[in-house]
Amino acid sequence: MELFNLFIKSVFVDNMIFAYFLGMCSYLAVSKTVKTSAGLGLAVTFVLVVTVPVNYLVNKYLLAPGALAWISPKLATVDLSFLTYILFIAIIAAIVQILEMIIETFTPSLYSALGIFLPLIAVNCAILGCSLFMQERGFSNVGEAAVFGLGSGLGWLLAIVGIAAIREKLRYSKIPKGLQGVGISFIITGLMGIAFMAFMGIKL
């Protein structure tokens, strides 16, 4: 039940886009059609489900203050947490590269759907942001970290597919010249964010 709460919370309440503005760059750039945005959303979810638990383990057994105690008690006072950023981003870049190779070898059809998006993902703020939030909140086990990754990914997918659908319809509406394109997408995202705030008070 705990896990289910965490899942719902990370999809709706702590939505990556509407509550934290993470991954906005690709969100605005790739949301012109529903099909491509769904592809990118799936790729992000996929990478989050893999990277967040891995980074959780790295944080627990390598980076957190006193985390090295499992090697020998002498290392219990070592604090490597200043290495967090460089290690997390290196792990994310490496995992994205490995995933790309695995997908290309075993499921070419999935590769042709996700392939072009995968390299983009290494520098998507949502991925690194999710790992940093995971570290900040201090989850108690790998399962929670994985569920948090899955929920955040699905929340991101929901947001990008939503805005893509709205933008597809928007092509037929009359928008002031200066607002066309990026401007109106910003304002719509803001309005969607206000709508999503309705979930904020929910306690499960």
Binding site: F18, F21, P176, K177, G178, V182, I187, G190, L191
Partner: peptide, 24 residues
């Protein structure tokens, strides 16, 4: 948070109205 997006949207609007060559 959502108001930040709307403020940026308005800045873009003003900027692009003054510089029509930037409009999409």
């Amino acid at each position: 948070p959502p108001m930040a997006l709307i403020v940026v949207g308005i800045i873009i609007w003003i900027q692009r109205t003054r510089n029509p060559e930037m409009q999409e």
